[in-house]
């Protein structure tokens, strides 16, 4: 029966074309239009980038000559403008110095490199540029993008918080802890060494490839959105929290709260907003892709039902403050009333 109907439909379509009901060339125009937008999307033209500041010369502008050196110059210029006097201090640090920019700016450069790599697949010129710089630059990128720059007392504080994560379902079972945007997984290993069942997730294949262990290929929001509720006893959020767009921070807090088992702990580590955005407070609050203040994170986490909020802010005046521009926030999901 359907074959007869299909024949009738084909005949009707031919009649429609012949009768002029279909504007001549419409189908070709539709195809051409898609090819145009496809090219634009593949080249990244006009695409907002992660952490884009709205600058007139965004770091991710790869429409010009494909020169990695030029890209680094742009990153450096942008970093100077955004970070002001903090830039030189940041630049001196070995990890960030490798990228010659602040961490969040380097993240943009890294994202740009990924995009250039995609372009290279279809461009002989881009392939030549990349093949000339790939070994040195990508090795540096892997080394420099291991999130976060966690050291000293901050690291101790974070590990103590997460080490307390215990399985609430099975007494005696190691707590299941996720490090979202885990880079090469070194903190996954640290957590595992503390007896936790630690997992990692990171969307960047070049970084992930450098690591070993239980690392899943996934972005943080994507991974948490796909996670069943009450899955993890601990969640460590790094990297992604520095460059969330408005609305995404709320989503991240909600997803993290949902993914925590009762009694579970979430710890997030972020750059301070005033370090990376040199603008007045109102403008800073309206800018997309900037870190949030610890108070804002506390508010968001509490809004989604978490309690026992704590903030760790290294004291820049003390000599052991290795990361004065980074803070951490932790919160716990309370047990249901019936279990307390």
């Amino acid at each position: 029966m359907t074959s007869e109907v299909v024949a009738e439909i084909e005949a009707q379509a031919r009649e429609l074309r012949a009768s002029g009901c279909v504007p001549p060339g419409l189908e070709d125009e539709l195809e051409a239009c898609f090819e145009d937008v496809a090219e634009a999307s593949l080249s990244g033209a006009g695409m907002p980038s992660v952490g884009e500041t709205g600058s007139a010369t965004p770091v991710t502008g790869v429409a010009g000559p494909l020169s990695l050196a030029g890209l680094r110059r742009q990153a450096t210029t942008l970093a100077r403008r955004r970070l002001g006097s903090s830039f030189h201090r940041l630049e001196r640090r070995s990890a960030l110095g490798a990228a010659r920019a602040g961490e969040s700016v380097w993240t943009q450069a890294h994202v740009t490199l990924d995009r250039v790599e995609r372009l290279a697949a279809g461009s002989a010129l881009a392939s030549r540029v990349l093949s000339a710089v790939r070994p040195r630059e990508l090795a540096a990128s892997v080394a420099a993008t291991t999130y976060p720059a966690l050291e000293g007392p901050l690291l101790t504080w974070v590990l103590e918080r997460l080490s307390a994560a215990k399985s609430q379902e099975v007494p005696g079972r190691p707590g299941l802890v996720l490090h979202a945007e885990c880079g090469d997984g070194r903190f996954v290993k640290m957590l595992a060494a503390r007896g936790l069942d630690a997992r990692g997730a990171d969307p960047r294949s070049s970084v992930r490839a450098a690591g070993t262990g239980k690392i899943v290929a996934a972005g943080t929001l994507e991974y948490l959105a796909a996670t069943q509720s009450e899955t993890f006893d601990g969640i460590l959020l790094t990297g992604v929290v520095d460059r969330l767009r408005p609305g995404a921070a709320r989503a991240l807090a909600q997803l993290a709260a949902r993914a925590l088992a009762p009694g579970g702990v979430v710890v997030l580590v972020s750059a301070r907003p005033e370090v990376t955005v040199a603008m007045d407070p109102v403008a800073a609050d309206l800018a997309p892709g900037r870190p949030l203040h610890p108070v804002t994170w506390c508010h968001l986490l509490a809004h989604f039902g978490l309690s026992e909020l704590a903030v760790f802010e290294p004291d820049p005046s003390t000599s052991d403050a290795s990361e004065p521009d980074v803070f951490a926030v932790s919160a716990r999901r309370p047990f249901p009333a019936s279990l307390m």
Binding site: M1, T2, V5, V6, E8, I9, E10, Q12, A13, L16, R17, V22, L26, E27, L30
Partner: peptide
């Protein structure tokens, strides 16, 4: 199988005509 309209081409006009039918 025969539980749907299966077209040999996906020209937009043909698909639209099939949907309308």
């Amino acid at each position: 199988l025969d539980a749907g309209i299966v077209l040999a081409s996906k020209s937009p006009v043909l698909v639209a005509t099939a949907v309308q039918r």
